[in-house]
Write a protein that binds this DNA or RNA. Structure first.
Length: 798
RNA sequence: GCACCAGUGGCGGAAUUGGCAGACGCGCCAGACUUAGGAUCUGGUGUCUUCGACGUGGGGGUUCAAGUCCCUUCUGGUGCACCA
């Protein structure tokens, strides 16, 4: 039989669909498996081979689990709100709804052609009213619980996209969407109080099975540090300058203080400051720099001394100068620091440049050359003198500070509250009404969904104003509380909103009473295995964990963590070894591969390329190896003789079944495929196999190349569908060889090989080994004999 | 700058975690079948001065034994980046 993929693929895809074999059953008595892949953004350019790789991993796992008797939920959907669609709708003068529907249809067709075993009855689309109604519900819950608030703040603004971006979306000073420079702008925006959950997001990592690098990135992102807040009196004023430090033990080494240019104390002390105009000029200069520039120019420190006021060290009442410098950020800690140049690199540089004293308080370095951040004996530090480790001296200092009421232990996070809004059309409307009398009022739950008005013109406003603000029918409303005329919030939610809870909706996608039935959640949650890209580890994953924990607190979900396990696939690089991109022209279109080689070859090749978690370049030639493999697999039908097992191949089958089984669980798909290739080579060498053996082969291959497996299964008269047949199992005893080859080494060098019974004793093995290398032992004495059972004998000679 | 990961034939990559380096695939070489071969089949294929020696980025070390462990150094990738 030939691998005639054009004939068989559609046939089996239709069959799977009509037999409903991939549909998950609610409340089944079988063990459940919830496998989740990151749902795609349905862009106009269609699917990318990267999508196929991202889904193929759990596709294989899910198919195997299903064959092993699990009730599998392996869903797919579309994360369809967002700027690219909106921008292209503006460009082509159409509506994002039309584009979204067309793109979803395109993606659906492409995914089906690859033969993924998704449950297509549970598909979701975040832009559907029946979906975003619940996204709005969650927002209202957050609002009612004080976790959604408005605040004026310096925000990252993209002049090109005309939107405010979160810190996460503007990393490196570039807009995540259009890659243009972002600027700082003062604006009244929505925030979600994710910082309130910082500790729990951190602690929760201990109970989940994420890849170590995934955990590490989340830990870094949350950026927890412990230290102390210390209050410094400001000389010549009534002010207190509060600082945060992780090294309160170095307090006797403070020789100056620094505040951020935006620090409010400057205005408050305006009268006392004698060089205010100079400071103002510096502040304006800093405001011109983007945050990116400010952090990039970290070599050369700038700053201005504040004249007329000074700081007072609370420990010894010494007067110290205060500077304004932009190496201190208003957004972290208190926006003010105590500077200890002897033991902090940044403070050291600043002190050198401005000629400030450097006082050593920890022995161990040479502070005339560089700052010393290591551990050592405390000196010049009054009651701390003689302490010789950081931990104890910090502890003692905090005790002292708290005793004297000049400071206290404190915790800081790098993570900031989540800027939660976009001033664009294609997003979930924020369901809030602004009433002159009642303030911000939530839209009543029964009025949800608050629909996006259907309008022709949805171009963004000039000043970063939402297009919804230009629609009077949308804006003008009655206050739900007092009934007087009021105005609607016109911002929409950011892209990350819909994806922050989508996995919950798969559990119960059509529910119109709640986001998902609690009984069904209890059965399906948590997600057993979530696979996706490393790029979503700090944003999507942290946001969704935050929402999930909140919903847990509200009693709407039953698990505190949404994902029990998280893995990540590596990128597929272009044939040139570079990241695939349209501009480089090295993008591989999965459709063309399906057309030319078939879905099974595409799937097999993508998993055979290399380590699933590592990046690997696409190689057109290597695909042929996988095609040959599947051709040869189909060709096995010609070699079938009889039923039962072939004694010569029996052990190979058991070994391969075992390896494929174990490798799939560890995502070692490349070696699983290699093992099947080895088996097929052995079968061809042997010249024949039995019908049962071929059915077994079809079974282990099925998760990778399901169409070919089904076809062979049918031709060989297998019962029912291969995709729902029992996944082959192995007999451990039959994987063990009766005779084994043992390596004989002299001084660790390979000198011979012997074939011995598997259960040979140590003495016998060594005796045989000596015999095998007898000629080389002549004239030497064996001083040491090493025997590794089943592996080798190593003789050390003199 | 800091942290983490990686570096193995002409190429993609294996190596049961300290025990035969190079599985499997591509490519290449030779042969078979062919009007033809970018199809298929068979055999070969780490390097060299080939009954031997060398060989997992470089240098050093531990060990009977090192791709694997330790130290050092170079290169590449990813993340964080003046976080007090």
């Amino acid at each position: 039989m030939k691998h005639d993929f054009k004939q068989i693929e559609k046939k089996w895809q239709d069959k799977w669909e009509s037999e409903h074999i991939f549909e998950a059953q609610d409340n089944s008595s079988k063990p459940k498996f919830f496998g989740l892949v990151e749902f795609p953004y349905p862009s106009g350019s269609g699917m990318h081979v990267g999508h196929i790789k991202a889904y193929s991993g759990l596709e294989v796992v899910s198919r195997k689990k299903r064959m092993q008797g699990y009730n599998v939920l392996f869903p797919i959907g579309f994360d369809a709100f967002g700027l690219p669609t909106e921008n292209s709708a503006i460009k082509f003068n159409t509506h994002p709804r039309i584009l979204t529907d067309a793109n979803i249809e395109k993606f659906t067709n492409q995914l089906k052609k690859v033969g993924f075993s998704f449950d297509w009855t549970r598909t979701i689309d975040t832009t559907e009213e029946s979906y975003y109604r619940w996204t709005q519900h969650i927002f209202l819950e957050l609002f009612k619980n004080g976790l959604a608030y408005r605040d004026t703040a310096l925000v990252n603004y993209c002049p090109h996209c005309k939107v405010v971006l979160s810190n996460e979306d503007s990393q490196g000073g570039k807009c995540d969407i259009c890659h243009n420079d972002i600027v700082q702008k003062s604006k009244d925006v929505w925030y979600l109080r994710i910082t309130k959950y910082a500790d729990r997001l951190l602690e929760g990592l201990e109970s989940v099975d994420y890849l170590p690098q995934v955990k590490q990135q989340q830990v870094n992102w949350i950026g927890k540090s412990t230290g102390a807040f210390v209050n410094f009196r400001v000389g010549n004023t009534d002010e207190t300058l509060r600082i945060y430090t992780t090294r309160p033990d170095t307090l006797f080494g403070v020789t100056f203080m620094v505040i951020a240019p935006e620090h409010p104390m400057l205005e408050r002390c305006r009268d006392k400051i004698t060089n205010f105009s100079e400071l103002e000029a510096y502040r304006e200069e800093c405001a011109k720099k983007t945050e990116f520039q400010r952090t990039q120019l970290n070599k050369d420190k700038t700053g201005v001394r504040i004249d007329g006021i000074c700081g007072i060290n609370p420990l010894n009442n010494k007067e110290i100068p205060i500077y304004v410098a932009d190496y201190v950020m208003m957004g972290y800690g208190t926006g003010a620091i105590m500077a200890v140049p002897a033991h902090d690199e940044r403070d050291w540089e600043f002190a050198k440049k401005f000629g400030i004293d450097i006082i050593e308080v920890i022995k161990g370095g040479d502070i005339s050359v560089e700052a010393y951040a290591g551990d050592g004996e405390m000196v010049n530090s009054d009651f701390l003198n003689g302490y010789n480790n950081k931990k104890d001296s910090i502890k003692r200092m905090i005790e002292y500070l708290e005793e004297k009421g000049i400071g206290e232990e404190g915790v800081q996070y790098k993570m900031k509250d989540w800027a939660f809004n976009r001033q664009r059309y294609w997003g979930e409307p924020i369901p809030i009404v602004h009433c002159e009398h009642c303030g911000m009022v939530p839209v009543p739950e029964e009025e949800l969904p608050l629909r996006l008005p259907d309008v022709k013109n949805f171009e963004p406003g000039e000043g970063g104003e939402s297009p919804l603000a230009k629609i009077p029918e949308f804006v003008n409303c009655k206050c739900p509380v007092c009934g007087k005329p009021a105005k609607r919030e016109t911002d929409t939610m950011p892209q990350w909103a819909g994806s922050s809870w989508y996995f919950l909706r798969y559990v119960d996608p059509k529910n119109d009473k709640c986001l998902a039935d609690p009984e069904k959640l209890k059965y399906w949650m948590p997600v057993d295995w979530y696979n996706g890209g490393m790029e979503h580890v700090t944003r999507h994953m942290i946001y969704s964990r935050f929402w999930h924990k909140f919903l847990y607190d509200m009693g709407e979900v039953n698990t505190e963590e949404p994902y029990a396990k998280r893995t990540a696939q590596g990128l597929i690089l272009g044939p040139d070894g570079e990241k695939m991109s349209k501009s480089r022209g090295n993008v591989v279109d999965p459709n063309e591969v399906v057309e030319q080689y078939g879905a099974d070859v595409l799937r097999t090749y993508i998993l055979f390329m290399g380590d699933y978690g590592a990046a690997a370049p696409w190689n057109e030639n290597s695909i042929k190896g996988c095609r040959r493999f599947l051709d040869r697999f189909c060709g096995l039908t010609e070699l079938v003789k009889g039923e039962g097992v072939t004694p010569e191949l029996e052990a190979s089958f058991h070994k391969t079944v075992k390896k494929v089984n174990l490798d799939i669980d560890e995502m070692k798909f490349n070696t699983a495929i290699a093992a099947m290739m080895t088996l097929i080579n052995e079968i061809y060498e042997h010249g024949s196999l039995t019908r049962d053996e071929l059915l077994t082969f079809a079974g282990i291959l099925c998760p990778f190349a399901p169409h070919a497996a089904e076809e062979v299964w049918e031709v060989m008269g297998g019962k029912g569908l291969c995709s729902v047949s029992e996944f082959p199992t192995w007999d451990e005893a039959k994987t063990e060889d009766k005779s084994i080859e043992i390596v004989v080494q002299l001084m660790g060098k390979l000198r011979g090989k012997i074939v011995v019974p598997a259960d040979i004793s140590k003495d016998d093995a060594i005796a045989l080994a000596k015999e095998a290398v007898a000629s080389q032992l002549e004239g030497h004495t064996v001083v040491k004999e090493i025997y590794v059972p089943g592996k080798l004998v190593n003789l050390v000679i003199k």
